[in-house]
Design a protein around this nucleic acid. Structure first.
Lengths: 100, 100
DNA sequence: ATAATATATGAATATATGTTCATACATTTA
DNA sequence: TAAATGTATGAACATATATTCATATATTAT
């Protein structure tokens, strides 16, 4: 394993990426999308969040590539971007469920 | 795999845990500790950070169990808590290094 | 006991972040 | 084209967070 410290730009990108997992609302959206692809409306309804709140958070999730999306008709459908996302959620859950 | 959404308390704990990876200073500390156990002074010197800055961040890292520590003499020596920490750093690095 | 060394903590401040309101943009239907 | 539907965006506000300064606590050495 490579034990060097990443350069500043990488550290900033990495922090930005991992920070995106650091909000309960975004986590709810991610856990929901872990099940299946969903549109904005469906996410809002399922989680009882305002559409604008969901859209703002999805914008972040898109930019940091935690989710992908496709447009169909007047809807936009989101899903998790790749396996990394589920892996981090999984490891995180393991960690917090450990006896302290 | 279990596809349910964690309950609120878990979501808050998980967010708090993962958010802790979301700052470049803390990431620097974690990558440094990935190599070997280190005292506060050594961390400050190595990363050119003030001792108080490092102590404040280590307090966070302790509380969220990203690091463990042991006291020896007048020093306090920190190391990564468990494999989860390295795993998340590793997956995160993979993610940001992917071609966009 | 006093001084020296190592680490931790509280308050203050500047910056970042999440949610809401208002509104814009895009696509489909009438 | 106008209305309806679905989604996105900008500004504002309240709260959270990172760093610094001042100082406290703990351990060792004199």
């Amino acid at each position: 394993m490579n034990k060097t410290i990443p350069v500043d730009e990488e550290l900033i990108d990495l922090a930005e990426f991992l920070r995106t997992f650091g909000d309960p609302t975004r986590l709810r959206i991610l856990f929901l999308l872990r099940r299946r692809e969903l549109g904005v409306q469906a996410i809002s309804d399922e989680l009882s969040l305002q559409q604008t709140t969901v859209s703002h958070q999805l914008k972040l999730l898109r930019h940091l590539r935690l989710v992908r999306y496709r447009k169909e008709g007047r809807g936009v459908f989101y899903r998790l971007n790749d396996d990394h996302i589920e892996q981090i959620l999984e490891i995180g859950m393991q960690h917090i469920q450990e006896q302290v």
